[in-house]
Every structure is written in structure tokens, then in C-alpha cells.
């Protein structure tokens, strides 16, 4: 029950348009676990931070660089997200993760990407090798949904109730 029940991999060019694409793809895949609206919003934000860092920092001097995203869903409602780049890497991860630390203040970066990823997930691991790239792993366990909530989810956008069923658990 606690093993990996679904997995996706995606690679795309590190362009700013693809930030929204990456969020949409991640959100649509994670939706298979029926997350709360707030949980999905938080994970979308965390993915956006990670991908934006690849675009803004990792491949700053390497146009056409590729971002690799992998998401795994587990039976215990754990979501595993790995985002990897082959960009410039981070010299000092401890310093980079400090809230408000940024190497791009002139571009109106707030230096809060890592702080947002940390607060919106349960676990964040960063590995980096200067000159070779960075790997970021985030994990979050989604709340258990009660049968009542599942029923509520079966109403359509206008709020009209659709046929209800007993969720299989």
C-alpha cells in the first residue's frame, strides 16, 4: 500500500514560458491523488519556485538548458518531486537557502524561493555541484480524505451533486 503507485517524468527547455507549463503538468498529475485545493496550490508554488530557479539562475549563461522533473505518487499519499538541472550549480547551499539571500537583487528577486519550498512541503533536500548542476527533492504527505469529502468532490463546478459512490479504501 505504501509503494509507488504512479510516476511521471518530463524534460523541457528552461524558458520562462515553461514555468506555467511545469506547474500545470505537476498539478494535473498530483490531482490524481485528490489533494485539497490548498495542498495543490502549495505544491504548484513549490514546483514554480524550483523551475524558476533553473531558468533564472542555473541556466543564466546557458540558453536552451533542460529542466528534468520527476514526480512519484505513493500509496500512503506521499508526493515525491525531483527537479534537476545541469546548470551552474550552487557554491554554498547553506547561504543560498537563507531567507532573503539572492544573487539577483537587481532583477527584483526576493530571495524567498527556498523559504517558500520549505514551508510548503514536508521535506526539502538540495544537492549541488558547482559547474555540474543541482538536484532538488521535495516531499509532502497529503491529508487523508474522509468519505464525506470524497462525496463532496463529486459535485460538478456549478455545485450540482453528481452520483455519489462509496470510495474504495
Amino acid at each position: 500500500m505504501n509503494g509507488c503507485i504512479n510516476e511521471m517524468k518530463l524534460s523541457f527547455i528552461a524558458s520562462s514560458e515553461n514555468e506555467a507549463f511545469a506547474r500545470a503538468a505537476a498539478s494535473s498529475f498530483i490531482s490524481l491523488l485528490d489533494p485539497l485545493v490548498s495542498e495543490l496550490a502549495e505544491l504548484k508554488t513549490a514546483v514554480s519556485e524550483a523551475v524558476t530557479n533553473c531558468v533564472v539562475h542555473a541556466y543564466r549563461d546557458m540558453p536552451g538548458g533542460i529542466v528534468y522533473m520527476q514526480i512519484k505518487l505513493f500509496g500512503d499519499r506521499r508526493v515525491y518531486i525531483k527537479i534537476r538541472d545541469k546548470g551552474c550549480g550552487i557554491e554554498d547551499i547553506g547561504q543560498a537557502m537563507q531567507p532573503l539571500f539572492t544573487t539577483a537583487p537587481e532583477e527584483e528577486r526576493a530571495g524567498l524561493g527556498f523559504a517558500v519550498m520549505e514551508s510548503f512541503t514536508d521535506k526539502l533536500r538540495v544537492k549541488s555541484s558547482p559547474g555540474n548542476g543541482t538536484v532538488l527533492v521535495m516531499e509532502k504527505v497529503l491529508q487523508e480524505r474522509s468519505p464525506n469529502e470524497c462525496k463532496a468532490n463529486l459535485s460538478d463546478k456549478s455545485g450540482r451533486k453528481l452520483r455519489t459512490c462509496t470510495p474504495v479504501r
Binding site: 506547474r23 508554488t45 524567498l112 523559504a115
Partner: peptide
Amino acid sequence: SFMDSSGIGLVMG
């Protein structure tokens, strides 16, 4: 509909 830390940069600026 969505905002990440880029929005914080926008507000701070």
C-alpha cells in the same frame, strides 16, 4: 490566480 516569490519581488519593488 497564482503567485510565487516573483510576486513578492514585485510588491517589494
